[in-house]
Design a protein around this nucleic acid. Sequence first.
DNA 1: CCCGGAACCTGAAGGC
DNA 2: TGCCTTCAGGTTCCGG
Length: 286
Amino acid sequence: MPELPEVETIVNDLRPRIEGRRFTGVSVYCPEMVHKSSVAELKRRLPGQVIKKIARRGKYLIFRLTSGEALILHLRMTGSLRLSQKGKPLAEPSPYVRAVFSLDNGTELLFTDRRKLGTISLVKDESEEIGKLGPEPFDTSFTPKALAERLSKHKAPIKAVLCDQEVIAGIGNMYADEALFFSGIHPLRAANSLSDVEIKRLHKAIREVLTKAIGNGGASISDYRRPTGEKGSQQYDFYAAHRGGQTCKVCTTPIERIAVRNRGTYFCPKCQKDAAETTQIRFSSL
DNA sequence: CCCGGAACCTGAAGGC
DNA sequence: TGCCTTCAGGTTCCGG
Protein backbone atom coordinates (compact mmCIF):
# COMPACT_ATOMS: atom_id res chain seq x y z
CA MET A 1 0.00 0.00 0.00
CA PRO A 2 1.56 3.27 -1.00
CA GLU A 3 2.37 5.42 2.01
CA LEU A 4 4.85 8.28 2.24
CA PRO A 5 8.00 6.26 1.36
CA GLU A 6 6.35 4.60 -1.61
CA VAL A 7 5.00 7.88 -2.99
CA GLU A 8 8.36 9.57 -2.36
CA THR A 9 10.07 6.77 -4.30
CA ILE A 10 7.64 7.19 -7.18
CA VAL A 11 8.24 10.95 -7.24
CA ASN A 12 12.01 10.45 -7.20
CA ASP A 13 11.77 7.92 -10.03
CA LEU A 14 9.46 10.09 -12.14
CA ARG A 15 11.21 13.40 -11.68
CA PRO A 16 14.27 12.90 -13.93
CA ARG A 17 12.19 11.10 -16.52
CA ILE A 18 9.16 13.33 -17.05
CA GLU A 19 9.64 16.64 -15.24
CA GLY A 20 9.66 19.33 -17.93
CA ARG A 21 7.70 17.16 -20.38
CA ARG A 22 4.43 18.29 -21.96
CA PHE A 23 1.16 16.36 -21.73
CA THR A 24 -0.14 15.55 -25.20
CA GLY A 25 -3.24 13.57 -24.25
CA VAL A 26 -5.10 11.59 -21.64
CA SER A 27 -7.36 8.53 -21.78
CA VAL A 28 -9.46 7.50 -18.81
CA TYR A 29 -11.02 4.04 -18.68
CA CYS A 30 -12.48 4.43 -15.21
CA PRO A 31 -14.27 7.81 -15.06
CA GLU A 32 -15.35 7.35 -11.44
CA MET A 33 -11.71 7.72 -10.41
CA VAL A 34 -11.73 11.34 -11.57
CA HIS A 35 -12.61 13.65 -8.67
CA LYS A 36 -13.06 17.43 -8.48
CA SER A 37 -13.21 17.61 -12.27
CA SER A 38 -14.42 15.39 -15.10
CA VAL A 39 -12.90 13.33 -17.88
CA ALA A 40 -14.02 16.01 -20.34
CA GLU A 41 -12.32 18.69 -18.31
CA LEU A 42 -9.11 16.65 -18.08
CA LYS A 43 -9.12 16.20 -21.84
CA ARG A 44 -9.72 19.90 -22.35
CA ARG A 45 -7.33 21.35 -19.80
CA LEU A 46 -4.41 18.92 -19.54
CA PRO A 47 -3.01 18.55 -23.09
CA GLY A 48 -0.44 21.20 -23.92
CA GLN A 49 0.55 21.76 -20.31
CA VAL A 50 4.13 21.28 -19.18
CA ILE A 51 4.96 19.49 -15.94
CA LYS A 52 6.87 22.22 -14.14
CA LYS A 53 7.38 20.28 -10.96
CA ILE A 54 6.58 16.86 -9.53
CA ALA A 55 6.04 16.86 -5.78
CA ARG A 56 4.64 14.83 -2.94
CA ARG A 57 2.45 15.92 -0.03
CA GLY A 58 1.49 13.17 2.38
CA LYS A 59 0.47 10.28 0.15
CA TYR A 60 -0.55 12.56 -2.72
CA LEU A 61 1.43 12.96 -5.96
CA ILE A 62 1.33 16.45 -7.37
CA PHE A 63 2.13 17.52 -10.93
CA ARG A 64 2.41 21.31 -10.97
CA LEU A 65 1.49 22.63 -14.40
CA THR A 66 2.37 25.74 -16.37
CA SER A 67 -1.15 27.15 -16.01
CA GLY A 68 -0.82 27.14 -12.23
CA GLU A 69 -3.20 24.22 -12.03
CA ALA A 70 -2.17 20.91 -10.49
CA LEU A 71 -2.87 17.32 -11.46
CA ILE A 72 -3.11 15.44 -8.18
CA LEU A 73 -3.11 11.64 -7.96
CA HIS A 74 -3.76 9.39 -4.98
CA LEU A 75 -2.98 5.68 -5.25
CA ARG A 76 -5.02 4.58 -2.21
CA MET A 77 -4.40 0.85 -1.75
CA THR A 78 -3.69 -0.81 -5.04
CA GLY A 79 -2.83 2.04 -7.38
CA SER A 80 0.51 2.29 -9.11
CA LEU A 81 2.14 4.37 -11.81
CA ARG A 82 4.12 2.82 -14.62
CA LEU A 83 6.20 4.43 -17.31
CA SER A 84 6.34 2.99 -20.79
CA GLN A 85 7.28 4.06 -24.29
CA LYS A 86 4.36 4.58 -26.64
CA GLY A 87 3.42 1.39 -28.48
CA LYS A 88 5.83 -0.68 -26.45
CA PRO A 89 4.06 -3.04 -24.06
CA LEU A 90 5.28 -3.33 -20.48
CA ALA A 91 7.48 -6.29 -19.66
CA GLU A 92 4.81 -7.19 -17.11
CA PRO A 93 1.55 -5.88 -18.61
CA SER A 94 -1.24 -4.95 -16.19
CA PRO A 95 -4.91 -5.76 -16.85
CA TYR A 96 -5.82 -2.88 -14.54
CA VAL A 97 -4.80 0.21 -16.51
CA ARG A 98 -7.34 2.90 -15.54
CA ALA A 99 -5.81 5.96 -17.20
CA VAL A 100 -3.01 6.76 -19.63
CA PHE A 101 -1.25 10.13 -19.72
CA SER A 102 0.72 10.71 -22.93
CA LEU A 103 3.77 12.95 -22.99
CA ASP A 104 5.57 14.79 -25.78
CA ASN A 105 8.61 12.51 -25.78
CA GLY A 106 6.60 9.38 -26.49
CA THR A 107 6.49 8.39 -22.86
CA GLU A 108 3.22 7.16 -21.41
CA LEU A 109 2.37 7.33 -17.73
CA LEU A 110 -0.02 4.48 -16.87
CA PHE A 111 -2.20 4.65 -13.77
CA THR A 112 -3.03 1.06 -12.87
CA ASP A 113 -5.35 0.20 -9.99
CA ARG A 114 -6.84 -3.22 -9.35
CA ARG A 115 -9.52 -1.92 -7.01
CA LYS A 116 -10.31 1.43 -8.66
CA LEU A 117 -10.07 3.29 -5.36
CA GLY A 118 -7.35 5.66 -6.54
CA THR A 119 -8.18 9.23 -7.49
CA ILE A 120 -7.29 11.68 -10.23
CA SER A 121 -8.03 15.37 -9.88
CA LEU A 122 -7.15 18.50 -11.76
CA VAL A 123 -7.47 21.52 -9.50
CA LYS A 124 -6.83 25.24 -9.81
CA ASP A 125 -5.66 25.44 -6.22
CA GLU A 126 -3.80 22.54 -4.59
CA SER A 127 -5.39 23.27 -1.25
CA GLU A 128 -8.73 22.06 -2.61
CA GLU A 129 -7.29 18.56 -2.45
CA ILE A 130 -4.57 18.65 0.18
CA GLY A 131 -5.43 21.68 2.29
CA LYS A 132 -6.36 19.77 5.41
CA LEU A 133 -3.28 17.58 5.70
CA GLY A 134 -1.21 17.65 8.86
CA PRO A 135 2.52 18.46 8.87
CA GLU A 136 5.09 16.62 6.76
CA PRO A 137 7.20 14.36 8.97
CA PHE A 138 10.43 15.84 7.55
CA ASP A 139 9.35 19.46 7.78
CA THR A 140 11.40 21.49 10.24
CA SER A 141 8.16 22.59 11.87
CA PHE A 142 7.45 18.97 12.79
CA THR A 143 9.18 18.92 16.15
CA PRO A 144 8.55 16.62 19.13
CA LYS A 145 6.67 19.51 20.68
CA ALA A 146 4.45 19.88 17.61
CA LEU A 147 3.75 16.15 17.69
CA ALA A 148 2.96 16.33 21.41
CA GLU A 149 0.49 19.15 20.86
CA ARG A 150 -1.32 17.23 18.17
CA LEU A 151 -1.42 13.94 20.06
CA SER A 152 -2.75 15.66 23.18
CA LYS A 153 -6.00 16.38 21.35
CA HIS A 154 -6.80 12.71 20.77
CA LYS A 155 -7.61 9.94 23.18
CA ALA A 156 -8.04 7.29 20.48
CA PRO A 157 -5.38 4.53 20.20
CA ILE A 158 -2.03 5.95 19.11
CA LYS A 159 -1.98 3.54 16.17
CA ALA A 160 -5.19 5.05 14.79
CA VAL A 161 -4.10 8.63 15.45
CA LEU A 162 -0.78 8.13 13.63
CA CYS A 163 -2.77 7.06 10.57
CA ASP A 164 -4.89 10.23 10.71
CA GLN A 165 -3.67 12.39 7.82
CA GLU A 166 -4.84 15.57 9.52
CA VAL A 167 -2.63 14.82 12.52
CA ILE A 168 0.47 13.95 10.50
CA ALA A 169 0.67 13.43 6.75
CA GLY A 170 1.93 10.30 5.02
CA ILE A 171 1.85 7.57 7.65
CA GLY A 172 -0.39 4.57 7.02
CA ASN A 173 -0.90 1.15 8.47
CA MET A 174 2.57 -0.28 7.86
CA TYR A 175 4.72 2.61 9.01
CA ALA A 176 2.53 3.33 12.02
CA ASP A 177 3.28 -0.22 13.20
CA GLU A 178 6.99 0.23 12.51
CA ALA A 179 7.25 3.60 14.25
CA LEU A 180 5.48 2.24 17.33
CA PHE A 181 7.73 -0.81 17.40
CA PHE A 182 10.88 1.29 17.34
CA SER A 183 9.60 3.60 20.01
CA GLY A 184 8.49 0.72 22.24
CA ILE A 185 4.91 1.94 22.44
CA HIS A 186 1.89 -0.36 22.49
CA PRO A 187 -0.49 0.41 19.60
CA LEU A 188 -3.53 0.62 21.89
CA ARG A 189 -2.12 3.31 24.16
CA ALA A 190 -4.31 6.43 24.19
CA ALA A 191 -2.59 9.05 22.04
CA ASN A 192 -2.93 11.69 24.77
CA SER A 193 -1.37 9.42 27.40
CA LEU A 194 2.18 9.35 25.99
CA SER A 195 4.93 10.83 28.10
CA ASP A 196 7.33 13.45 26.74
CA VAL A 197 10.06 10.83 26.56
CA GLU A 198 7.84 8.51 24.57
CA ILE A 199 6.82 11.27 22.18
CA LYS A 200 10.46 12.14 21.61
CA ARG A 201 11.22 8.51 20.81
CA LEU A 202 8.17 8.27 18.57
CA HIS A 203 9.16 11.43 16.70
CA LYS A 204 12.64 10.02 16.09
CA ALA A 205 11.29 6.60 15.12
CA ILE A 206 8.85 8.11 12.59
CA ARG A 207 11.66 9.86 10.77
CA GLU A 208 14.03 6.89 10.95
CA VAL A 209 11.46 4.38 9.78
CA LEU A 210 10.38 6.55 6.85
CA THR A 211 13.98 7.38 5.88
CA LYS A 212 14.98 3.73 5.82
CA ALA A 213 11.91 2.79 3.76
CA ILE A 214 12.66 5.51 1.20
CA GLY A 215 16.20 4.15 0.96
CA ASN A 216 14.71 0.73 0.25
CA GLY A 217 12.47 2.09 -2.50
CA GLY A 218 9.32 1.38 -0.49
CA ALA A 219 7.61 -1.88 0.49
CA SER A 220 6.17 -4.12 -2.20
CA ILE A 221 3.40 -5.56 -0.08
CA SER A 222 0.39 -6.11 -2.34
CA ASP A 223 0.44 -4.27 -5.69
CA TYR A 224 3.08 -1.58 -5.14
CA ARG A 225 5.70 -1.26 -7.88
CA ARG A 226 8.05 1.54 -8.80
CA PRO A 227 7.32 3.33 -12.11
CA THR A 228 10.04 1.21 -13.68
CA GLY A 229 8.24 -1.97 -12.64
CA GLU A 230 10.82 -2.83 -9.99
CA LYS A 231 9.75 -3.88 -6.54
CA GLY A 232 10.86 -2.08 -3.42
CA SER A 233 12.72 -4.04 -0.74
CA GLN A 234 11.41 -2.51 2.49
CA GLN A 235 9.09 -5.52 3.01
CA TYR A 236 12.18 -7.55 3.96
CA ASP A 237 13.21 -4.94 6.53
CA PHE A 238 10.03 -4.77 8.56
CA TYR A 239 10.31 -5.51 12.26
CA ALA A 240 6.59 -5.55 13.09
CA ALA A 241 4.43 -4.77 10.06
CA HIS A 242 3.01 -7.84 8.34
CA ARG A 243 5.09 -10.17 10.52
CA GLY A 244 2.30 -11.90 12.48
CA GLY A 245 3.51 -15.17 14.03
CA GLN A 246 7.14 -14.57 13.10
CA THR A 247 9.65 -13.93 15.85
CA CYS A 248 10.62 -10.44 16.95
CA LYS A 249 13.99 -9.53 15.45
CA VAL A 250 15.00 -7.96 18.77
CA CYS A 251 13.76 -10.39 21.46
CA THR A 252 12.46 -13.46 19.54
CA THR A 253 8.96 -13.17 21.07
CA PRO A 254 6.29 -13.97 18.43
CA ILE A 255 4.88 -10.84 16.81
CA GLU A 256 1.16 -10.49 17.57
CA ARG A 257 -1.59 -9.35 15.29
CA ILE A 258 -4.62 -7.49 16.62
CA ALA A 259 -7.28 -5.30 15.04
CA VAL A 260 -7.18 -1.59 15.83
CA ARG A 261 -10.10 0.23 14.24
CA ASN A 262 -10.53 -2.72 11.93
CA ARG A 263 -6.95 -2.44 10.71
CA GLY A 264 -4.44 -5.27 10.99
CA THR A 265 -1.93 -4.16 13.59
CA TYR A 266 1.33 -5.95 14.33
CA PHE A 267 3.45 -5.46 17.43
CA CYS A 268 5.83 -7.21 19.78
CA PRO A 269 4.12 -7.79 23.14
CA LYS A 270 7.45 -7.75 24.94
CA CYS A 271 9.12 -4.75 23.28
CA GLN A 272 5.89 -2.74 23.27
CA LYS A 273 4.47 -2.96 26.77
CA ASP A 274 1.01 -1.85 27.69
CA ALA A 275 1.87 0.71 30.35
CA ALA A 276 4.08 3.74 29.83
CA GLU A 277 5.98 3.29 33.06
CA THR A 278 7.31 -0.16 32.20
CA THR A 279 8.47 0.70 28.72
CA GLN A 280 12.17 1.01 28.28
CA ILE A 281 14.37 1.87 25.39
CA ARG A 282 15.97 -1.33 24.29
CA PHE A 283 17.32 -0.03 21.05
CA SER A 284 17.81 3.45 19.77
CA SER A 285 18.38 3.15 16.08
CA LEU A 286 17.43 0.96 13.16
C1' DC B 1 -17.50 18.17 17.68
C1' DC B 2 -15.85 13.48 18.49
C1' DC B 3 -15.68 8.76 17.81
C1' DG B 4 -16.40 4.35 15.70
C1' DG B 5 -17.96 1.77 12.03
C1' DA B 6 -19.52 1.13 7.19
C1' DA B 7 -18.88 1.90 2.43
C1' DC B 8 -16.17 2.11 -1.62
C1' DC B 9 -13.91 -1.95 -4.66
C1' DT B 10 -12.20 -6.52 -6.33
C1' DG B 11 -8.63 -10.09 -6.32
C1' DA B 12 -6.33 -13.18 -3.10
C1' DA B 13 -6.51 -16.38 0.39
C1' DG B 14 -8.63 -19.62 3.31
C1' DG B 15 -12.35 -22.82 4.77
C1' DC B 16 -15.35 -26.55 3.86
C1' DT C 1 -11.70 -29.03 -7.43
C1' DG C 2 -14.72 -25.39 -6.62
C1' DC C 3 -17.73 -22.44 -4.36
C1' DC C 4 -18.26 -19.27 -0.77
C1' DT C 5 -16.69 -16.10 2.72
C1' DT C 6 -13.46 -13.17 4.52
C1' DC C 7 -9.70 -10.05 4.25
C1' DA C 8 -6.79 -6.22 2.61
C1' DG C 9 -6.62 -0.78 4.38
C1' DG C 10 -6.76 4.90 2.49
C1' DT C 11 -10.27 7.90 2.63
C1' DT C 12 -14.93 9.65 3.06
C1' DC C 13 -19.35 9.49 4.88
C1' DC C 14 -22.79 8.78 8.33
C1' DG C 15 -25.02 7.88 12.66
C1' DG C 16 -24.87 8.05 17.64
